[in-house]
Amino acid sequence: MSDLTPAATTLAAAATGHGFLSPTGVEIAFLLVGLATLGAAVVTVTTKQLVHAALWLVVALGGIAVEYLLLTAEFIAWVQVLIYLGSVVVLLLFGLMLTKAPIGRSPDADSNNRWVALGVALVAAASLVWVVVDAFRTTWIDLDGPAQGSTKVSGEILFQHWVLPFEALSVLLLAALIGAIVLSRRDAVAGPEDHPKGQQR
């Protein structure tokens, strides 16, 4: 099965009796975790308490990590847990604390155009879901066989085929680090002029 093209795999899968109304165990698990993820995401964008929004974001991002595991992308799931849950959410919480965000309910968390935003989001969701369901109605993912996102596979492809973008990414991270330091210095204006003198001293 694995040496066929995806289209042939799809046709074979459609012929062997997959269906909307006979979900497999993986699909049921994906659906349940997806509902939890979506609910946490909706609470994240609608809650009035700013710190609770960050904590619900943890639930949503963790749900997405579980979805990666169900799609057999193990390495990306753990990278998601480490980077998003470990550092990005902590950074966001630091940002909330440093901007003196109110701890309790803040009634002005949403701006006045939230109904326009709701309309735009609903229209976008309806059109996207319609297009996606219509396009991939008879498409199945073949999850059998060895895991396609294990650490061994990811390391091999990353350091054989993608090593140059990987190095460019490290330069980008360095630039972002320097940029964040320059932005958050208090005496950013007087910095470049004093620098040669500082070296002479």
Binding site: T37, L38, A41, V45, A117, W140
Partner: peptide, 23 residues
Amino acid sequence: MHLAYPAVLAALLFCTGLYGVLA
């Protein structure tokens, strides 16, 4: 697994984020 499950979930999450950015 049907491909529509992750695709629909991704579309809905994207629109949730879109609402958050705008609102």
